[in-house]
Amino acid sequence: MKSANTRAMVALVIGAVLTLAAFIGTFFWAAVPDYGTVSQPKYSFSARHPEAIDERLAHDYIGNRVGYEVEVVTDEGTVTGTLVAAEPKEGSGDGADAVMLATVATASGEQTIEVTKDDEVTAQIYNYGKPDWGQKIFYFHVPIAEISFIVFAVAAYFSVRFIMTRKREYDTKSRIAMELTMTFVALTMATGILWTKAAWGVWWQWEPRLTTYFIMTLLVVAYFVLRNSVEDEERRALYAAAFSILAFIDAPISFFITRLIPSTHPVIESGGLQPPMLITFIIAQIGMLFVGYAIYRLRMGEMELRDRIERAKTELEG
């Protein structure tokens, strides 16, 4: 018992130190060659008002980067320079391909590029000229989001074990993993909403990642609602296990089906991260994992203590 707690505390300290290191790293190291790739995926289809959605999409991607140096790659070639303006094209929609006009100040003067609906448009943003504070949250938001999926998987795994064995320890483990999922989901939501405001100018958008994540949050909340509304201990454990398995199956389906809505959420491209960013990111990720593990161990220790008290009580009763 004691050694388990010691281990948990050690993990907590390591995790905290790593996370703190990553935090400092984002400002003093990874910040310097601030470089990122934002790519616009091929447009998703929509049977209704395609033009309106595409305008919004294009604006979210490129319109927010006015004042930055960009590299716009289209079919006709590559243009590098400072983005001066990004306007929806007049009269776009009725069969017209171009939905947006991006004006870029290049060395040889201003150039206006037609951003077309069916093209894959990549806007590479580098040498921001000013620090992109919004981007800092990436080092926390992404690791936390990844861990939330990992602990969710752990919870589902213990739920399967519980249904097979009916041993209460697996129910406890599954529940604690679910509590962790709840914590990380809440943190991901909080950091995500802050970033959405900074990058997209709105607090919330019904966008695939956000929507999926919102559904996942509801599933985790539902898990605890279910737990709290069942009286019998074993029945509660069985129901909770069954539901967490269903939720775990549902989450990826939700994730993929949301492709039916066009997306503006950035995706990290392979090789898109420069070493300083990558290393900082990995350190933050490992740090968070340690913190997660530590919380898990501490909660388990607490549950084991509760069990001992219960056992002592029953023995005293005779």
């Binding site: 559904i215 599933l219 609602v225 279910l226 549902d250 939700s254 089906i257």
Partner: peptide
């Protein structure tokens, strides 16, 4: 409880 469990779980079906 049924609504709370049911609606998030059928979200993919509903969207499709």
């Amino acid at each position: 409880v049924l609504a709370m469990l049911f609606i998030p779980l059928v979200y993919p079906l509903l969207l499709g």
